[in-house]
Amino acid sequence: MFVWGSLLYFRIYTPPANAMNIYVVGKQWMWKVEHPGGQHEINALHVPTGRPIQLTIISQDVFHSFSIPAFRVKREAIPGRFTSVWFQATMPGTYHLFCTQYCGTNHSQMIGDVVVMTPDDYKKWLRESTSGESLAQDGERLFASLSCNACHNTRPDARGPNLANVYNSQLTLTSGLAITADDAFLREAILNPSQHITQGYAPIMPTYQGQISEEGVIALVEYIKNLNSDYRIQQTLNTTDIVPENEGKAAPTTPAPAGQKEVKP
């Protein structure tokens, strides 16, 4: 029983590599969901069937807990750090979404619906509810407006490291620590920069704690994650990337509408 339970536990909390990542921010007393395509939802989560969905969860204030009983999925939303969980929906329908960690007055109002759709419906939904900008594009706008690019650029005399391809790369910090630049690292480096200085750079970056919301941080992280070679290309990222055409078993794939398709890197 112990072994079985533990295997299950490891499986639920270790997302597969090809999972689609959706960000969830808990806040007194609502769930804010950020799709990579820039769709925002409150107290609702739309997902397609037949695809592993990874949720990256964080809280903006106190402990919350993101729970979808029907999928046997639950993960605490902790202020100040990312947690993640994954699932794969099989049946279209509407399911309950609860906050299960007591979080204050309207704890019991912090509920919503998980809407599971067929991949086709999902694509339609994505198209209809897009805000016109992907999450990464939001991030890019922030990146520019906070003047991050004043230091983090490709010029040889740049004061900050170039962030292209930084995601998932091995970094050596000034403390000598070798670390993988994952979501959590990127987030921390924005909020508490001085502990996360890459070797060879001066600790001059100001903290952005309290200046950007959790959604802003998420947008920035998403932007940095998608920086592949240089900035320009990234603008071409768009919503159609979210549901790649080469899904394993989705046979009757309709070609994505032409309008959504832009130049891919």
């Binding site: 339970g5 533990s6 295997l7 299950l8 536990y9 639920i12 009983p69 046997r72 639950k74």
Partner: peptide
């Protein structure tokens, strides 16, 4: 106490 089932049952 079993981690896998705890995920579903805890906080309910």
């Amino acid at each position: 106490g079993s981690t896998g089932t705890d995920i579903h049952l805890t906080e309910t």
